[in-house]
Every structure is written in C-alpha cells, then in structure tokens.
C-alpha cells in the first residue's frame, strides 16, 4: 500500500467505508448541566455499536440555557440505528427508562425534519390518563405527572434517513501509552465537531472487529490482522514498529459531518507527531463494495 507522511506520521492511502443510517437527535435539559449530563450518560450507556446494542448514541454537545426550549442547561444527543423501526424502539426505551426517570429532566426534539419519530406521543401513556397535552405555536408537548413534579416531553422528534455511520480512523502507535495519547487528542478534536458522535467508550474502541467468526452464531470477531500480539502468527496489517492499535468510530447526521470529524481527528493526530502519539494512521473498509460513503484519508490531511 502506498503511504503518505505528514509530520512524521505515516498515513495509509486508503479510505473509511461508511453506511447510510437512520438517525435522530434530542435535546435533554435539567435544573443543572450535571443532571442533564447524567440523564444523557445513562441513556447512551450500552449504545456503542448496532452489532449488539440496537443503536449507537452519544453526546453531540452541551447547550447553554439560551439554546434550549425551557431556558435550562441541556445536552444534545444523537442516536443512530439501521432501521426506522429499531430507532423508534431504542428511542422509546432509552428515553422512557433513562430520561423520564432522571430528576428534573425534560426532553425535546433535537432535529427538525419532515419525517418524525414518536417521543412524548409514545411515552405519554406512562401518565395513566393524567397526561396533559399542550400546544404552543407549532410545538406540541406532553406533560406527565411524576413524583418530583412533571416530566415534559415533546410529542415527536425528527428522523433523518441520510445519516452516515462507520466513519473511522485506525490509530497505530509504538506503545499503548502513545497510541492512547493520539486517540485521546483525536477524540477531543472530533468532539468539537457538530452533528457527529463517537459512540465507543470515551470515543475510542480497542477491539476493532471483522465480520463473522469461526464460531457459529457470532456476527463479529476480533480483527486479528490488527492485533499486535498475533503479528507473527497471522497475515498482519501491522508494521514492526507498531505495538498498539486503537480505533475511533464516527457517526454523523450528514456525510459532511463525518468528513469534518475525520479531518479534525487526523489533524490532531498529525500535530502530535510519531514520538508522542501515533506512528501510522489507517482506516477500515470492506473493499468499497458495502458502503456508499468513502472517506479517503489522503483528502483529509491537514
């Protein structure tokens, strides 16, 4: 594979292959940013990969009181799934179990589109007949009496069918410490990009997977070509100077958001250089036959 070099970091001449996904966004508020964050952290727990979690979800950004419908601090969260039905199910379960239950929370649409997913329209039944519908202008809210007062929830939220999932960067370093430093720098930079999330813990995945397994019933298994401890035993993708690999997976509401996120991440890795960070950056793909979005690393270089 032909390679480019930027600030001493080797960049593979390859691309990240990404897929169309269904996505939605929510604005979740509370009396303090701490409790808004808590509701969202609970809601987006166990939402790292559609392989086993049903959806991929994470914080997009924190919102100032003047950016939220009720003037309280809030957090914008994005959710991605492979089908509208699954997204609806995940949305309803997660908001119902994690946001409705969180002290002082309220939940609003975070995306305005023609197509809608049920939010309060589905959760209102929790109120057992005591729910109150309020319409102000073109907004429709449900008020549900709960033990600390009322849970306010917008009736619907927007749905986009042109979201993109699976943008990624494979960050390869000389040891686990420097590799993690590069991945952290990339995750921090990507976090600042709007409309894009990194669903894995802290934005970083250490167990990149391949499709299928030697065992029946397993949909995915470890990607041994990128496992440094198997370097001598398999047809490795790693160079002799690489002892640790971490991956950042990116989902975005638009292809542009994913591209911007990958660009920001790559810039941060290159800036850190090979001594303190990664010696090489690659990206995962399936030969370009499965996903229609291809993000070429060489086009993303700073």
């Amino acid at each position: 594979m032909r390679r480019l070099t930027a600030n001493g970091v080797r960049i593979d001449d390859t691309f990240a292959e990404a897929f169309d996904m269904r996505a939605t966004a929510l604005t979740i508020t509370a009396d303090s940013i701490g409790w808004a964050r808590q509701a969202v952290i609970t809601m987006t727990g166990f939402a790292t990969s559609v392989i086993g979690c049903g959806c991929e979800a994470a914080i997009d950004r924190e919102l100032n009181p003047n950016e939220t419908p009720d003037g309280r601090p809030g957090v914008r969260v994005l959710l991605f799934a492979v089908s509208t039905a699954e997204l609806q199910k995940q949305l309803q379960n997660r908001v119902g179990q994690c946001v409705l239950t969180s002290p002082g929370s309220a939940c609003y649409a975070g995306l305005e589109t023609e197509e809608k997913l049920k939010l309060g329209d589905a959760l209102r039944f929790f109120a057992d007949g005591w729910q109150i519908s309020k319409r102000f202008g073109d907004k429709h809210y449900w008020r549900l009496p709960v033990m600390d007062g009322e849970f306010v929830c917008e009736a619907t939220t927007g749905l986009t069918k042109t979201a993109v999932g699976g943008g990624n960067l494979l960050i390869m370093g000389a040891n686990s410490r420097t590799t993690l430093a590069a991945a952290e720098a990339a995750a921090k930079a990507i976090h600042a990009v709007r409309d894009a999330i990194m669903p894995f813990p802290g934005g970083i995945a250490r167990s990149g997977s391949k499709v299928g397994s030697k065992y029946k019933g397993a949909k995915a298994s470890t990607n041994e070509f990128y496992c440094p401890t198997l370097r001598g035993a398999v047809a490795t993708a790693l160079d002799p100077d690489i002892s640790s690999v971490l991956e950042i997976v990116i989902d975005g509401l638009t292809p542009d958001a994913v591209g911007a996120a990958m660009r920001a991440g790559l810039k941060a890795i290159v800036r850190l250089g090979p001594k303190r960070g990664a010696v090489r950056v690659g990206a995962g793909n399936y030969g370009g036959k499965l996903g229609r979005h291809h993000f070429q690393l060489k086009e993303m270089l700073p």
């Binding site: 419908p69 003037g71 309220a106 907004k139 809210y141 007062g149 009322e150 306010v152």
Partner: peptide
C-alpha cells in the same frame, strides 16, 4: 404551589 418546566415553555411562547 409548583415551579413547572411547562410554565417556562409557555412563557417562552
């Protein structure tokens, strides 16, 4: 006596 979030939405409108 209550201080409800719904009142904030109403006030904003």
């Amino acid at each position: 006596v209550h201080d409800l979030v719904a009142m904030r939405l109403m006030a904003a409108f």
